[in-house]
Amino acid sequence: MARSKPMLVAMADLRMAMQVRYVKLGIVGMGALGPLMAIIMISVFVIFPTTEEETSLILGIMIPMAGTLLAVFSVIPATLIAANSLVGEREQDTLEPLLCTPLTDRELLWGKTLSSLIPSLTILLAGTAVVMIVTNVIFVLYGRPMMLVPDLAGLFLILTAGPAIILTAVSINILISGKVKRVYEAYQTSGAIILVLMIPMFAPIIGMESGIPNTSMVWTVNIVTTLIAATLMIVTWSLAVKRFNRDRMISLR
């Protein structure tokens, strides 16, 4: 079966992005760093425990944070790929030939979006699976009961706010692609959206009651974060679809 035109654009964009050293290192590095940090953050207190009470308390704080950590590190590759795809290609004089093809604006838009969205979602879901498996192997080896890592609230955040923020980051790159001339400008601007995902990071600590993490607080913060992320996604994507214009991108020098 022939691939769709947007998918062909996405594959071409991704191949080109992987030829840029900092993009390749960013994708590989962030893809590995998120799960690695989550595993270390949780496992170190199992491998080198203090008292059972302290270990349980620390795990009660760290496990809810794992979902946020994985989501944050999955957004960074999206910003790198999108910035390179939209602004970096213009710097390298490789954008104009693609924009001058008989593809429609909508096909180009979807292709540019998928080139960032697919790798980032893959990193997010694969990283989550790795953390689940590795942490529970460590739990079993050190005589602790198996646990859901990330927990349900974290998985909710990963499956809702994570994709929404990734698409928001891509949409922001599309919106500013006709206004900025350098990749680092696009990357810095779209990368700021990661701050939204930092909100749930502090929920387990802020919501502690008598030294015990408040699960209700964690869920509330994660749901609010998801609503914020969904709102940003809808607004930025709608604007991106409305304003994407190849002529404007070509004319900017």
Rank of each mutant, 00 (worst) to 15 (best):
I193F: 07
P64R: 07
L159I: 13
T231H: 09
T135M: 04
I193C: 08
G29W: 01
I118D: 08
L103E: 08
G111E: 12
V224I: 15
K179L: 13
I228K: 05
I212G: 06
I228G: 02
T104F: 13
V221F: 03
Q92N: 13
V9T: 03
T225M: 09
G162M: 08
A230V: 14
V72E: 06
F139H: 09
T79M: 12
E91L: 09
L36A: 14
L124F: 06
L59F: 04
Y184S: 09
F156H: 10
I118V: 15
A229D: 05
Y184L: 08
E53F: 08
A12N: 10
T225A: 10
K112L: 14
N245Y: 08
D151V: 01
G26T: 07
N245H: 12
G60Y: 03
W237S: 06
V87E: 04
V134I: 15
A32D: 00
G60L: 05
L14E: 03
P213S: 09
K5Y: 12
S190D: 09
L155M: 15
V72T: 07
T68H: 01
T79G: 14
S210P: 00
V9F: 01
S216D: 14
F156T: 06
L86P: 01
L121W: 07
V131F: 03
T94Y: 11
G207D: 09
L103Y: 15
Y184P: 00
G31W: 04
V221C: 03
R15F: 06
L36S: 06
A32W: 02
L141P: 01
A12P: 01
I47H: 09
G178D: 11
S85I: 10
R106S: 12
R106K: 14
Q19V: 00
